[in-house]
Simulated scan of single mutants.
Amino acid sequence: MDIITSHPRIVKMKKNDITLYISTFPLETEDDFLEKLKETFDVEEACDGKNMAECFAIIYGGIVISKNSIFKRIELEGYFKESDKGIEFEINRFLENPYNCYTFDNGTICFIKNKEKDSRFVDNVGLRFIIK
């Protein structure tokens, strides 16, 4: 039995004690998480040593918002890209209207509905398996 696995790459954006984990392409096809998962078929063990919110984004895709040990996953149909200007990121503002440009401690990104130059797709699928 051959198992082919992949998961989205994660872009991490931080604002004070809040972290956004954004699932995107290209997919990872080889890393420690996938190797552990293929060996054990135990997601909890494969996530060992990773932040649980990041692991949740790897498994389920989408955008995971984490504050301390609490996190929320949302699906966003669209893309994101780096920008020079934006409004300060606040969770409630983002949940009301995610399609905007937000500033974080480590940069500014815009969430957009349609593909633009240099934009990246938000992957809402997450972990993929092919067993043959």
Rank of each mutant, 00 (worst) to 15 (best):
M13I: 04
K14H: 05
K14V: 11
K15N: 01
K15W: 01
N16S: 05
N16D: 08
T19I: 07
L20M: 03
Y21H: 09
Y21P: 02
S23N: 10
T24C: 08
F25Y: 13
L27T: 10
E30T: 10
L34V: 07
L34C: 09
D42L: 04
V43N: 13
A46W: 09
A46M: 07
C47R: 11
G49M: 05
K50Y: 14
K50Q: 14
N51L: 10
M52P: 14
A53Y: 00
E54F: 12
C55W: 07
F56P: 02
A57I: 09
A57K: 03
G61C: 06
G61E: 03
G62A: 07
G62C: 06
I63Y: 02
V64S: 03
S66L: 00
S66D: 01
K67L: 00
N68L: 00
S69F: 06
S69H: 06
I70L: 03
R73E: 06
I74V: 13
I74E: 02
I74W: 04
E75Q: 15
L76Y: 02
E77V: 14
E77I: 15
Y79V: 05
F80R: 03
K81W: 09
K81S: 07
S83R: 12
F89T: 02
E90K: 09
I91H: 00
I91R: 00
I91G: 00
N92I: 04
N92D: 11
R93T: 13
R93M: 10
E96I: 13
N97Y: 06
C101G: 11
Y102E: 07
Y102H: 12
D105A: 03
G107Y: 09
T108R: 06
T108P: 08
C110W: 07
N114S: 11
K115A: 10
S119T: 08
R120D: 08
F121T: 09
V122D: 00
V122K: 01
D123W: 03
V125W: 12
V125R: 10
G126C: 13
L127E: 14
L127N: 15
L127V: 15
R128K: 15
R128H: 15
I130P: 05
K132V: 11
K132E: 11
